[in-house]
Structures are given as structure tokens and as C-alpha cells.
Simulated assay, not measured.
Amino acid sequence: MSDVTDGAKSEQASSAEPSTEPSAAEPEGSTDAGTDSGTDGTEGKNKKKNSRPFWKELPLLIGIALVLALLIKTFLVQAFSIPSDSMQNTLQRGDRVLVDKLTPWFGSEPERGEVVVFHDPDGWLRDEPTPKPNAVQKFLSFVGLMPSAEEKDLIKRTIAVAGDTVECKKGGPVRVNGKALDEPYIFEGNSACDDMPFGPFKVPDGKIWVMGDHRQDSSDSRYHTSDVNKGFVPVSQVVGRAVVIAWPVNRWSVLSVPDTFDQPGISAAAGAAPGVLGVAGALPFVIRRRRRLTSGRTAG
């Protein structure tokens, strides 16, 4: 009896232990497959939730692009359109130029020979009609993607800067600090200033003297000597230097400074330097001589 009982207990115990063999009713790997599919499904749902349609991100991308364009226009470069013939043949009507607005932030001022864009200093364009841009043009000009039609800006070549003496007599060349300018950029058939001789004028501090390359078709400093600035343009009104013709493509070129503005002795500071050095060198001898005279009188 005891053997049967023990055998029954042993059989019950062995049947209570989990079987390591796969059941015929359940195919192998069914549990693992169910778990994996559940995990993949969750990850797929998360990916769908995290990914956003492109059309939802498009306004953000456009906003970033507009902010960058506005910053570039304000601090780096700005495009300007040439509306007249006053700078022919260097610039043609309809050209688009890029103007450097960065260097003025670091104290850079216009130099002789540079082509500069500046705000109307004192009604130079009062007789010019002002275009009426539409809303789209206003927006594009605001972010710097096209020139502003409402701003009264001019573009000319810097001829003389603060401290320079500039003049031009009929039949003669423009002279800066006594040095004649060789101006191959002047429009063919034009004289240097026969239509409006001027000077000599000394350029005040903080001002520049500007002229158009098409001398007989340019209302520049020569024609405004009776205004509040005496024809000079305040440096504070200068937007920046035009550095390149960007459009049309077949006219792409860099607006460099002509060699004539680098000729020796053209700088007013350089011209004054020998005199200053001469006075400084002679000063010790003058002081010594005065001391000798004073001591001689005292001894006598």
C-alpha cells in the first residue's frame, strides 16, 4: 500500500513540474513572435507620432529664411537697382549691385575711387518721381530680397574725402590735392567737368565729394554747392560701398578702385607729412638758439 501511495505522490509531483518540451498544440516560437510583433507595433506608432508632415514645417522654414534675409540686409549686404544713366559706363540702367554694409559698422569710411550708395543728403532727388510699390514689393524690399522703391538713395563715385582739396577747371582734369586724376571710367565723349567746373573746395571732416562717371548726365556734388552741405555728402548718410555687379549675369564684375586714386602724393595727409616732419625736426634747433640768445642777454 505504501508503495502505491508513494508512487502516486511521485507521479503527481512529476506532473506538476513544467514540461520543457514544446506542446503539440502550440507551434514553436509562437510566444516570441507575438512579443516581437507587439514591440514593433509600438515603435511604429511612436515614429508616426514623432514625424511631422513637411507642410507643417514649411512655415517655420520660411520664417527662419526671412529672418536670415533681414539680418543679412541690415548688417551684411543689400541689393540696389540702378535707375539712371549717371554712372555709365561703369553701371548701366537696370544693373543690380551688392552693397557692403558690414565694414561701416566697424568704423570704415568711404575712400577715394569707391562707388558708394548714400541717402539723399538734401533734396537732390526732390524732382524725381517716386514709384508706388505694391504690397508684395514692399515686403520683399523689407527683407532685402529686392531694392526699396521708396527710399531716396543715390549711387556715385567718391572723388575726395575729408581733408582733401578738390577742383576742376574747364578743359582740365579733376585735381585732388593738386594731383590730376586719370579717369578712364568717364563716359565716352564726356569731359571731366566742362559742364560744371568747380573749386577749389576743401572737404570738411565727416564729408565726401562725389561725382557720377557720366559727367554730363549726373546731378552730383557739383550741382548742389548751394545746399546745406555745400555739395558734400555726410559720411553718416552713406549706406555702404558697391562691391559687385550681381545682375545681369553677363555683366557680373567687381567694382574695384581705379589706380589713379593710388598715385603718390594724392593723400592730403601724405602731402602734409613732410612739412610736419620738417617743423618737428627744426623745433629743437629753434629752442636751443633761443636759449643761447636768452643766456647771452642775461650775461650781458
Rank of each mutant, 00 (worst) to 15 (best):
M1V: 13
D3S: 13
D6L: 14
G7H: 14
E11T: 09
E17N: 06
T20D: 13
S23I: 08
A24V: 12
E28Q: 13
D32Y: 10
T39L: 15
G41H: 03
K47S: 13
K48R: 13
N50E: 02
S51Q: 13
R52Y: 10
P53D: 15
L58V: 15
L61G: 12
I62D: 01
V67I: 15
L70K: 11
I72M: 14
T74K: 15
F75L: 12
I82E: 05
L91K: 02
R93E: 09
G94H: 02
G94S: 06
D95Q: 07
D100A: 02
E109G: 04
R112G: 11
E114G: 01
D120S: 03
P131N: 05
P133G: 03
P133Q: 06
A135T: 12
F142Q: 04
P147W: 03
D153T: 05
R157M: 06
C168K: 01
V176D: 03
V176Y: 02
N177L: 05
D182S: 14
E183G: 09
I186H: 07
G189C: 11
D195L: 10
F201G: 08
M211V: 12
D213V: 01
R215Y: 02
S219Q: 04
S221I: 05
S221A: 13
N229C: 03
G231K: 01
G240K: 00
V244K: 03
A246I: 07
V254T: 10
S256Y: 08
P258R: 04
S267V: 06
A268F: 14
P274V: 11
P274T: 07
G275L: 15
G275W: 15
A280P: 02
P284W: 05
F285S: 10
V286F: 10
I287R: 07
T298M: 08
